[in-house]
Amino acid sequence: MRKVAIIGAGPAGIEAASVLAKYGVQVTLFEKSETPLKNIQDKAFLFPNFQAAQEIADDLSGKLLTDGITSAFGIDIADIKWQGTEWKLIDAKGQTYVADAVLVATGYQVFDAHRKEELGYGIYKGVITSLDMEQMIKHGKITNANGDEPKRITFLQCVGSRDEKSGNNYCSKICCVTAVKQAIEIRKQLPKCEASVFYMDLRMWGQGFEEMYRMAQEKYGISFVRGRISEAAATFDGRVQLKSEDTLMGLPLKMTTDLLVLMVGMEASCGTKALGQACGINGEYGFIKTVTPHLYDNDTGKPGLFAAGTCKRPMSIWDSVNDARAAAIAIKDYVDSLPQ
């Protein structure tokens, strides 16, 4: 039986593993941490239908039980090498594994907001990231720096994406709709709390997104301001003072908010960067480079080495899952074409 190694047990890795296992391929699923689906479990509800992230995580975990999947959690694959007929995987402890084909599904990490010091993350308590906000929503405890109920929450889009200075010129794709989603959640949980979103332009690309955006304005009264926040400062009562410009009005703007939520973008994860570099498939910004985005989006150009999910570029969960299925089929074709 053919053996396939999948690196990364996120939505893409698990989905590809289950599809391949159903086709009768023997799959080993490597994951650096002890539990799968780390990133998805940080989330509360998912756009655009506000389904609980836990449900999706549970469904995906269920797929791990498919026959033919061996879960190898807590194993950090540091390097992979082509041996002429098969791939050799080497983990951080030096142990080796072999496989006929490898799927890289090492995923993303969020931009470290400390790098944008002018926004005061890590300096002012009132400045948090979208992940922190997701946790607050998840636990139903949205509080300001002093532990009180906030009166105003402000979102800032494009932190660490579409930003030449931090070297990430690309769009992270999911933050626009995430901010809309979170703002709606806040209004649902705290009807008295004002919410506003500072954006460059809102990219409502997916099905149902535009409707969500409209609902956010009409039903939930969330205000959207076109402009960047240039600088944040703490006030004496632990709130955050923002300096910005409303570029539609053409006016400078100063406002005070309880919480400033930085919508941090997606970056290639450390594992993605390291693996990409180790086997020479690293593209721009440390993401994995595929042959062409149109027809061979899972092929890396190396025999038997495939990639799926957010290790290639920012993606939503469903994009990742679909991409993983496509990758599974490509891998199946590849292992079938191998001489017996």
């Binding site: 010091e117 002018e118 300096i123 240039s230 400062a233």
Partner: peptide
């Protein structure tokens, strides 16, 4: 330094 508030703090 206002854009690097860690310094002024």
């Amino acid at each position: 330094s206002h854009l690097a508030p860690g310094i002024t703090e």
